[in-house]
Design a binder for these strands. Structure first.
Length: 863
RNA sequence: GCCGGAGUGGCGGAAUGGCAGACGCAAGAGACUCAAAAUCUCUCGCCAGCAAUGGCAUGAGGGUUCAAGUCCCUCCUCCGGUACCA
């Protein structure tokens, strides 16, 4: 006889509820519903790679999904969406190899991703799905580019790019690792090419100021500040000896001007050729040429050792009229400041290294205190003798001429006085400088957004009329870039031609494409109004939904996507096209999920398929050597990648979701352990058994109107409070723990109160929505619980008459006593002093001090 | 080097300045079973002890406090980012 058991079977109930949600459009966001508070919860959308989803994706997606479901039950109108950041290199490289159009590969990958994401039961409004490679989407990416162009924020420039001679192609910075190509490991050199650049530097100050008010991780905010790199310093004008020309340098240490003993120009500096003397020309030309062609690899390798050449020319130090030699060196960058520095070797470590190597005088003009030297581990006499470098604060000396004296002043005052003097004399001025560079915005690739630009015969460039958007990608046979770095689109002969509809002029289209960042710069805005063919988004809807209330994604985008996108948003804000100055109010990074890996005694990592487990120990299949396990980044080469499909097939999506949230705090790095999934799976099984009669599949007869015991009722209300607060704070691990404690209690009861079990089901619903919906229906409800009212707690039901109080004497625990919860400090103390153990410990001693913390402890200090 | 984050049992982790180790995993013992799985019960930081109990424990060392994983100072280790930015 076969017995049919109605066990917890996620494989059956999960697809059922996923279909229900789809069919009923349960999670559709309602535009401009002013009767409810809105919430826009955003996930960083994925690049749909051929490898499919990995376990890192659902971590952030589960976190936001729980929050959304929780907020819906609390009456919010929630916008929660998903889409595809689908332009990118892998599809293009696959196309180059196989001839398959990237759109075909992309569509296939999206299908896989979508199937996988749906199998997690995420509550996305799928009607708002977007795809950056869809012409109906990139039409508006191009439209925003038009706005940038119209504002003068896009310009053409001859820029050095990463050129890989072996591959015959240009590579993005992200594709270059340590000066070599990510694919094939070939050397990469810098080669100047025509590029499109966005003037992000114009927004440097606004981007910096905006950071302060963001509710973001402090580290990420700091990274953006450092990336923008604002510094306040001064420009100082130096006369070149025997020339009409002057050189302007940028310095943050104008207080040390009297200690400048030489000057350095970037090798590419325009004045180099002009001022170099005949006898130095050969050496300078050779150095300039070497710098120009040097690969990134060579440049990084030479990082520590200074190189340079003397131009033969001298500059006049404006404060003391000393002649100082002018050198060139690649440690001075043309793209920062003015491309020229005054060098003060006594008070700058780089200048010190350079001067030491080339025998240039080092003149100390600042005396640090003995304490500062001790703290820094520096010999003060060496500093004063110019044998050691001092970059900290100190008192200036030998810093005076007939008009200005800094002698006796500290750094801050000296800077101020010097700038004032320079400005009065017309020799310089205060200047703010940024590390941030303009954004190289073009790629010589096929699989990206075409620029909506045409080149005219006279060399000018203009936008195509808005009515011609989108400029779609042409079909091509060959996606490979040409050998000289021309973009593949240059081969699309027909596409390339564009005839001006007004003048009839024959023009040529721009053949570069936009980088992958372009589509992700504004995608959150498209979610607001994804099907609008008249405009990128409707202003009323934008006003209703923006800003994004919570944005969750990896920390790897701390400066790139998260900065580029803020820049675009600020431009749109200045144009009145969006209503908020910042796109994302609150940002959280999910921590990486690591895999388990194994290493031998030398610390070499062994791929998991080469490892054998015996008696709880691990051995190399090859050598038999015992290995130790450790968490490590999941990678194909280590064979430690966990496939979410397999976990869902074995345990179900609810267990997967619950496990990833139970692992630890959302933002922490955590190692995956499949055995942990079994733990939460046991928990869900237990919940199932507490509600369902496994013989009939109906509601268990033990779930009835039996009153809840007082202790259980108290625990129930305490748990509602804890779970409510924890979910709101995204502290899901402790919320789950609280639910486990409650279930352990409830499942021990012979008869379980039905209302209590319903409350439990509602509490777990955001985290394990499938089993919750199923149990909700078994408990006799006909509709989804997605919009059921979130359980409320009653403080009065959480109160206890008596609590256990710890009594300490001199901080040592001496007794544990039950006392009335309402006892005053005085009463607590008296009860404690009456205790026999306490009496024994305090007997014959003087009470010095007493502390009573209601509900906690009493501490008696005796002498 | 600089900036950021983190160091708590065998493991993941918990702890408004108030009994460190909740919850879970793993491990061990038992119950149920012909047996296994599932389930249930118990044990489970380290040292000493049959035990009651005592001592030691939150990377190291100091400090503040009646009381410190938590606050302050110094240092060490690991992870992430960044690097000639004048």
């Amino acid at each position: 006889m076969t017995e049919i058991r109605h066990n917890y079977n996620p494989a059956e109930i999960e697809p059922k509820w996923q279909k229900f949600w789809d069919d009923h459009k349960t999670f559709a966001a309602v535009d401009c519903d002013y009767s409810r508070k809105k919430l826009f919860v955003l996930d960083m959308f994925p690049y749909p790679s051929g490898a499919g989803l990995h376990v890192g994706h659902p971590e952030g997606y589960t976190a936001t999904d729980i929050w959304c479901r929780f907020k819906r039950m609390n009456g919010y109108n929630v916008l929660h969406t998903m889409g595809w950041d689908a332009f990118g290199l892998p599809a293009e490289q696959y196309a180059i190899r196989t001839g398959t159009h990237p759109a075909v590969t992309t569509a296939k990958n999206i299908q896989t991703f979508k199937r996988q994401l749906k199998s997690f039961g995420f509550s996305f409004d799928w009607d708002r799905e977007i795809n950056t490679t869809d012409p109906n989407y990139y039409k508006w990416t191009q439209w925003i580019f038009c706005k940038l162009f119209e504002q003068g924020l896009a310009y053409e420039s001859q820029q050095p790019v990463n050129w890989c001679p072996e591959l015959g192609t240009v590579l993005a910075n992200e594709e270059v690792i340590n000066g070599r190509s990510e694919v094939g490991n070939f050397p990469v050199i810098r080669k100047p090419m025509r590029q499109w650049v966005l003037k992000i530097t114009k927004y440097a100050e606004e981007l910096l100021k905006g950071i302060d008010d963001l509710d973001w991780p402090e580290g990420t905010k700091e990274m953006q500040r450092n990336w923008i790199g604002r510094s306040t310093g001064a420009e100082v004008i130096f006369q070149i000896d025997g020339h009409e020309d002057t050189v302007t340098v940028y310095t943050t240490r104008c207080d040390t001007l009297f200690g400048a003993t030489y000057m350095v120009l970037a090798p590419e500096h325009l004045l180099v050729a002009k001022i170099t003397t005949a006898d130095r020309k050969a050496a300078i030309d050779a150095y300039v040429e070497e710098t120009r062609t040097k690969s990134d690899m060579a440049r990084t390798d030479d990082n520590k050792e200074k190189t340079g050449e003397f131009t033969g020319a001298y500059a006049i130090n404006p404060v003391n009229h000393q002649k100082i030699p002018i050198w060139i060196s690649d440690y001075v960058l043309l793209s920062y400041g003015t491309g020229a520095i005054m060098a003060v070797p006594a008070h700058d470590t780089r200048d010190f290294a350079f001067a030491t190597k080339f025998g240039i005088p080092i003149i100390c003009i600042m005396a640090p205190s003995q304490e500062d030297c001790d703290a820094a581990g520096v010999n003060r006499d060496d500093v004063l003798a110019g044998k050691a470098c001092w970059t900290g604060d100190g008192v200036l000396f030998q810093s005076a001429n007939e008009e200005i004296s800094l002698d006796g002043l500290h750094v801050a005052d000296s800077k101020k006085k010097m700038v004032e003097w320079l400005e009065a004399k017309g020799l310089g001025r205060e200047r703010v400088n940024y590390k941030l560079r303009d954004w190289l915005f073009s790629r010589q690739r096929y699989w990206g957004e075409p620029f909506p630009l045409v080149h005219h015969k006279d060399g000018s460039v203009s936008l195509v009329p808005e009515s011609e958007l989108p400029v779609t990608l042409p079909e091509m046979e060959n996606y490979k870039p040409t050998a000289d770095g021309e973009p593949p689109l240059a081969r699309a002969k027909e596409w390339l031609k564009w005839k001006d509809p007004v003048t009839g002029e024959e023009c040529l289209r721009e053949t570069n494409t936009m980088p992958q960042w372009a589509g992700s710069c504004w995608y959150y805005l498209r979610y607001i109004d994804p099907h609008n063919n008249e405009r990128g988004w409707d202003p009323e809807k934008e006003k209703y939904w923006m800003p994004v209330d919570l944005y969750v994604g990896g920390a790897e985008h701390a400066v790139l996507h998260l900065l580029y996108s803020r820049f675009w948003h600020k431009v749109l804000y200045d144009l009145g096209l969006v209503s908020t100055p910042e796109p994302w109010k609150r940002l959280i990074h999910q921590g990486m999920i690591l895999g388990i890996s194994y290493k031998d005694k030398r610390g070499v990592l062994i791929p998991n398929d080469q490892v054998e487990a015996r008696d709880g120990k691990f051995f190399s299949k090859e050598t038999g050597e015992e290995l130790t396990s450790l968490p490590a980044k999941m990678s194909k080469s280590l064979k430690n990648v966990v496939n979410p499909d397999e976990i869902i097939a074995r345990y179900g999506a609810d267990s997967f979701r619950l496990y990833e949230m139970f692992m630890g705090p959302l933002s922490e790095v955590k190692p995956w352990n499949t055995e942990g999934v079994e733990g939460v799976n046991r928990f869900l099984n237990k919940l199932w058994r507490a509600v369902v009669d496994q013989d009939t599949g109906k509601l268990s007869a033990d779930v009835c109107d039996a009153p809840l015991p007082a202790d259980s009722e108290r625990l129930l209300h305490q748990t509602i409070k804890k779970v409510t607060e924890d979910i709101d704070a995204l502290s899901y691990n402790t919320a789950i723990s609280a639910l486990m404690i409650l279930l352990n209690d409830l499942s021990k009861l012979p008869k379980r109160n039905k209302a209590a079990m319903e409350t439990f089901v509602l509490l777990i619903a955001p985290m394990a929505p499938h089993i919750a919906e199923e149990l909700w229906s078994i408990l006799g409800h006909n509709d989804t619980l997605a919009y059921e009212k979130w359980p409320s707690f009653d403080e009065s039901k959480m109160k206890v008459a008596e609590v256990q109080i710890l009594v300490q004497v001199n901080g040592k625990p001496k007794a544990r006593m039950m006392m009335p919860a309402e006892a005053s400090q005085e009463q607590m103390l008296q009860l404690a002093l009456a205790n026999a153990d306490v009496k024994a410990a305090t007997d014959g001693k003087t009470i010095v001090k007493t502390i009573a913390v209601p509900g906690r402890l009493v501490n008696i200090v005796v002498k």
